[in-house]
Simulated scan of single mutants.
Amino acid sequence: MARLLGVRVRRSAPLGAATRVDLDDGRVAVVKAGDGVVAEAAGLRWLAVPGGPPVPAVLAADDGWLVMEFVAGGHPAREPAAAFGRRLATLHAAGAPAFGSPPDGGPADAWIGSAAMRNVPGPRWPQWYAAERVRPYVRIARDAGTLSAVEAAVFDTVCDRLPDLAGPAEPPARLHGDLWSGNVLWSPDGAWLIDPAAHGGHRETDLAMLALFGLPRLDTVLAAYDEAAPLAPGWRERVPLHQLFPLLVHTVLFGGGYAGQAVAAARAALRTT
């Protein structure tokens, strides 16, 4: 850390997959190491949109290390949840050059959790989502035996029908990309975003991921979002479609019941038309 920050570390402690460090100059920081830090640093900088949800400041980064601002934890409350919904709408509205575009200065080869993720731009969301967010993970799960050929065929049907399932066309949004509840950090001054897998995508994908593992005060967040940036008709029915990507990632990483959840979501997506 002294090499990156010019300040010595006084003490350190584990913090999930990261490390909390207390620095000699009185600051507290979070340190991460590994293959994904370049993409994460670029994502944090890209998500730091005026009026958007706060993200930890990148204090220093290189090819193997990322040092970030430490954010104290807190508890979800109604008004911070509503503010988070409005701020998330602002972030999405900041846009992206294309679906699948990486953050400015970020690599095409990125990560979502511990799974590899490619950021390859495409002009239309349905075709891009099928090619870059559904089919690659179905292929891995099928080859590993986690999905049967019959189950994999359900996803093929979804991909073939995506232009009809996707709803009204929308411009590329600036996504967090891994917006499950564990990556929303409730602090005394509101909800912060951490651990992004940032890219250009469909804004409904971030919202669907918030619902996947039970974000506290989700109804308040969604109502405030919809008031600030009204969602297209049928968005609630499209939630399973947008949950396919995170469920398939979990299927690849953890197998087990996630495969069944992913197949159920695919079948639910097909029932929306």
Rank of each mutant, 00 (worst) to 15 (best):
V7H: 13
S12V: 12
P14V: 05
L15H: 14
G16L: 10
R20M: 13
D25K: 11
K32P: 02
A33L: 11
D35L: 15
D35P: 14
A48E: 12
A48W: 05
P50N: 07
G52Q: 04
V55A: 05
L59H: 11
A60I: 04
G64M: 03
F70T: 04
G74E: 09
A83W: 08
R86G: 13
A94V: 06
F99G: 05
G100I: 01
P103R: 04
P103F: 01
P107R: 10
P107E: 06
A116E: 14
G122V: 07
P123F: 10
Y129T: 03
E132Q: 13
R135Y: 00
G145T: 11
V150Y: 00
F155P: 01
T157R: 15
L162N: 00
P168D: 15
P171G: 02
L175K: 06
G177P: 00
L179N: 09
N183T: 09
V184D: 00
W186C: 03
L193N: 05
L193V: 02
D195P: 02
A197Q: 05
H199W: 04
H199I: 01
G200A: 06
D206A: 07
A211I: 06
L215V: 15
P216V: 02
P216R: 04
V221F: 01
P230K: 08
Q243H: 11
L244M: 12
G256F: 09
G260E: 14
A269M: 08
L270N: 00
T272V: 15
